[in-house]
Amino acid sequence: MSDYNFAYLDEQTKRMIRRAILKGLAIPGYQVPFASREMPMPYGWGTGGVQVSAAVLTPDDTFKVIDQGADDTTNAVSIRRFFQKTAGVAITEATSKASVIQTRHRIPEENLRADQILVYQVPIPEPLRFLEPSEVETRKMHALEEYGLMHVKLYEDISQHGDIATAYAYPVKVEGRYVMDPSPIPKFDNPKLEMAGIQLFGAGREQRIYAIPPYTQVVSLDFDDYPFQPTKADHACDLCAAEDSYLDELIVDDEGGRMFMCSDTDYCANRRKQGHVGAQGVPYAEDQA
């Protein structure tokens, strides 16, 4: 523990953030403005997610942090350490054991339960931002449900490329009302946005919090004749042979050799523990030896 308050933020600030979270849960997909604090890590590095985590963590929680699906990427390590130091909560790399998971760019492969909270770090919360730069105008568009422009963008993609050319941060419509940016997760993850757990999204620099309550309808925008398709590399994981998980592509030599492995490191390790071995993998026990 340290001289700071539990989970760094003072109780007043946490209360203010919790109010924003509750409002977000009450209006799924709506971006709630909140008075984001200056955190001891840079804006754009997860300050929104960190503030949301700080507001929901209790001393009994078990916390997991992933970045790109992995627990040991530098930013994940840094955020996990921050809460170890300021909140002293238990930490884990196992998705199933965590009660709060903070993530950047991925949704864990394993289905989350009703007693779990997933906290997303969000760089640009406004799905209409790159179509309309003015905040005043985009807030009005949300209020009046004027989303035609969003489909114009998808139309332009198809007319130019023959397909919807959005691979991540793929826009969704929540509960038939608000168009929402699911944060830069690959579109492969979009179907998982309908889940049992609570999903909270924090954008620190842009001062917005939004949420998806459990079992809320989340529809990826598309056309009837160009339906949304969650895609991944057409391979199996070279370590654990999983065919249903999102894969990272690694360049392994200077002759174009490459391998594919699960981006969700916990998922991959679990499968290997269970005895699955991929094309370039070794049995789990040997690797640990």
Partner: peptide, 16 residues
Amino acid sequence: GGNVGERLMAVNARHY
């Protein structure tokens, strides 16, 4: 095409 299509999409045309 997008310019002409926008008004259609604004009133929920969803077939490219």
